[in-house]
Amino acid sequence: MKISGKIRVAVAAISLVYILIPLLVTIPASFTSAIYPSFPPKGFSLQWYMKLLERPEFVEAFWNSVKFAFLAAFFSVLLGTLGALAIAKYDIPGKSYLVSLLTAPLTVPQLVLGVALLIYFTPLLLAGTPTGFLIAHIVICVPYVIRFVLTGLSGFDYTLERAAAILGASPVTVFWRVTLPLIRPAILSGALFSFLTSFDNVTVSLFMVSPDMRTLPLEIFSNMQDAYSPIVASVSSVVILISVILILILEKIHGVGRLLGSAH
């Protein structure tokens, strides 16, 4: 290998470490036996995981995170898949404008979206409610589902649907037995991606939150701003673990890189 190639690979390796290091230091730091977080950790103990279970707000935040991510993914997939099917299948005038409109929440900064929804929700009495929180999360998730399903349908052979219909299948059977199985990977990716997007979200959630409804990332955010304790490291490690499992499933189904390519 030429020297220029060696330099390139060296810089690339440094960059990779740069990208991954915050995740790589957080997990060891959570096993510290000291009362302040540090890397490398001092000693070894599981006390910060024990303390995590003793703090009801963290346990509740965990269930809130999972619950809202699940609901956001469910409704995003429902709305997004039906919409994308209609767009892909029928000759709708101004199709490209329609897709731009429906995926526009991705192009607006989440901060601005949070501001807009908080101000809009207040007179509607949705601000600080679970419903408002869920709606906001669907707004940021549904554009991904639309894009994934549209991409999944771009190579779709509609003669298959015709063939099924000719052979006597009802439109409902055609959908369940032909269309749905063919776009299932796209829908599954959309669901997992939406779950992760909602599960990870901080910016929009900050505007939608109320004191009695918190999520894990919001707990990390406020604990980082107020008091510093290794408990943040153990909560973060739990978030990393859940995310990594879902990412590996996504990678199996669709390839994370390709997915992000079609998302942005």
Partner: peptide
């Protein structure tokens, strides 16, 4: 690509420690 799917607060916390 995968760090993009892990919450930003977690990645910020790692750098905070460093």
């Amino acid at each position: 690509a995968s760090p993009l799917l892990i919450s930003i607060v977690v990645r910020n916390f790692g750098w905070y420690l460093l």
